Every structure is written in structure tokens, then in C-alpha cells.
Simulated scan of single mutants.
Amino acid sequence: MPDVLSALLSPVTHSVAAVLAATHDAAGAVGLSPGSAGAWLLAVLLLVVAVRTVLLPVTVHQVRSSHARAHAAPQLRELRRRYAGIRDLEQLTAMRTEQKAIHAEHGVSGWSLAPALLQLPLFYALYRVVSDLTAGHSVGALDAGLVASASAASLAGLHLTSHLGATLASNPLAGVVLVTAALGAALLSLLSQRWFVLPMTDVADLPEGMATVQRLMPWLGAVGVLAAAAFVPAGLIAYWLFNNAWTFAQQGLVWRFAPTPGSPAAARREARALEGAVS
């Protein structure tokens, strides 16, 4: 199955590899020594910037979809209340008709999750490219020469191919740097969820068990990053750090300027606007 998946997503993987090769060239163009650790770290950073910039329209669509669902939520709650306990087929059909009308009124799309699903092949390709590069495997435009360059690049004795356990044992200073990067990636993931995502999530309609899981998700995500960091190469940890920093900034902007209607974040924004109007 993994081989089939790799073959299906090969065009996406090769496209990402081409972008990473181009960002490495760009790092050299700004004065960094080609093949240096700084050049490769900047290349990974620019890769994150390029990919997340391409995905901005998807982000905007998701924000608009969450707003549409929030605007429709009160009517949908009332609809469920009116039809609670109904088992009659004719009435259930009428309920579905009303539900579709409410969705149409507020612009709720049945394909609202499609953009998120479309991101999965890209994220898989990113993982494969960075993983293959740091493992010493050539892929697409990242030929043997570039792979050897990435493998040889070193910062304080830390290579893109370094793994946490072996690095801590052989070079404690480099190990501390890698642990710090992993902690930074985990902390950014936690704070993004705790500060920005949860305050924009309305859990009123969720069962208590699901609401509890929703509140635990930030911690589970952070623990997942730390657990994975023990097994993946340093290049992937660097990618996670840069990517999570982008996510933190992006979610902060959404939380500040376009919170989901009806959420605690939206109430905070309205209170802040009211205070500004009074003063």
C-alpha cells in the first residue's frame, strides 16, 4: 500500500522536490554558501513559505466556511429541536429539505471539508521529500549531489540527517539544540490550538465526551510532535518548527480579525470594539 500511495503521489512529491531545490538555489543567491547548514535551513524555511502561501486561498475558504456554519447553527439547532424523536419518513424528508434550505441561505457547502482533504497529498509529499532528503535518498530535482550536500551540512555538529537519541549520546550540545527545536515546534502547536483555535470553536452542540476531546486536542498534538521528534531526522524537526510558526501567526491573525461568529473569540472582539467606541 505505501508503494502504491508513493506512485500515485509521485507528481506532487517531485513538484515539492523541485521547489526545495529552487529554494536552496535562492539561499545561495542571497549570499549563503551553497551546501552550508544555513543555506539548507533557509531552503526549508522558504519551502514552508512557498507552500503555505499557495494554500492561503484554502485557508480563506475554510474561514468563510466556518463563518457560514456558525451563522446557520442557531437555525439548525431549532430544526433539530422541532424534529427531535421523529421517526416518520415523510417528516424526516421534510427536515432534510429544511436543512438544505438553511445551508443554502447561509452558503454552507456540502464540500466544505474538501479543501482540507486536498491538502493531505501535499502534506504527505512534503513529509516524503524532507524525509528522503535527510535520509540521503535522491528524489526528483534533489539529485545525488544536492542530497550529499544536505547530508554534509552541519551546524554546531548537528546535521539535517541527525536523530535525537544518537545525537544526545555523541554530541550533547547538538542534542540540546535539537531538543530545543522539538520543544519549540511542540509549544507553537500547543499555543496555536489553546490561544487561537479553541477560542474560535463552539462546543455547545457537542456531546460532553467530544467537547472534552476537543479541549484535550492541543495537548495531544504537542505530545505527538515530541514523540515523533524522537524518531524523525533533524530536517523534519526544522520543517515542523517553521511550519508551526507560520500556523501560529496565521491562526493569530484569524483569531484577531475574523473569529468564528458566536465563539468566545468573537465575543472578545465585539467587547473590544465596544470599549473602543465608548472611549
Rank of each mutant, 00 (worst) to 15 (best):
M1P: 10
M1S: 12
D3W: 13
V4D: 11
S6G: 00
A7C: 01
L9F: 15
P11R: 03
S15A: 15
V19T: 06
L20H: 02
A21P: 05
A26P: 02
V30P: 07
G31Q: 09
G31W: 06
L32P: 09
S33M: 08
P34K: 06
G35C: 03
L42P: 12
L42G: 11
A43W: 01
L45T: 00
A50N: 03
V51G: 01
V54C: 03
L56W: 03
V60E: 10
V60A: 14
H61E: 12
S65G: 09
H67E: 14
A72N: 11
L76A: 09
L76R: 14
L76T: 10
L76M: 15
L79N: 07
L79G: 08
R82D: 13
R82G: 06
Y83P: 05
L89Q: 10
L89F: 09
E90D: 12
Q91M: 15
Q91W: 14
T93P: 02
T93Y: 06
T93E: 14
M95A: 12
R96W: 03
T97Q: 13
T97S: 11
H103Q: 14
A104G: 00
A104R: 11
H106C: 08
H106K: 08
H106Y: 15
G107F: 04
G107V: 06
A114W: 12
P115F: 00
L117E: 00
L120P: 00
L120C: 01
Y124H: 04
A125L: 03
A125D: 04
L126S: 02
R128P: 01
R128W: 06
V130F: 08
A135G: 07
A135R: 11
S138M: 03
S138H: 08
S138Y: 00
A141L: 08
D143A: 10
A144E: 13
A153H: 02
S154L: 02
G157Y: 10
G157M: 11
L158G: 04
H159T: 15
T161M: 05
T161V: 01
S162L: 04
L168M: 14
S170G: 15
N171H: 15
N171A: 15
G175N: 08
V177C: 11
L178V: 07
V179D: 05
A182R: 07
A185K: 03
A185W: 04
S189A: 13
L190G: 06
Q193G: 15
F196M: 06
F196R: 01
V197A: 15
L198H: 11
L198P: 08
M200Y: 00
M200W: 01
V203I: 11
V203E: 11
A204S: 14
L206H: 08
P207E: 05
E208A: 12
M210L: 15
T212Y: 11
V213Y: 14
Q214I: 00
R215L: 13
P218G: 05
P218M: 07
W219L: 15
G221L: 15
V223C: 09
V225E: 02
L226S: 12
A229W: 02
A230I: 02
F231E: 14
V232P: 05
A234Y: 03
G235V: 08
L236A: 06
A238R: 00
F242S: 03
F242T: 03
N244R: 08
T247D: 09
G252P: 13
W255G: 04
F257D: 04
F257K: 01
P259R: 02
T260E: 10
T260I: 07
P264L: 06
P264G: 07
A266P: 08
A267C: 00
E270F: 04
A271E: 10
V278P: 01
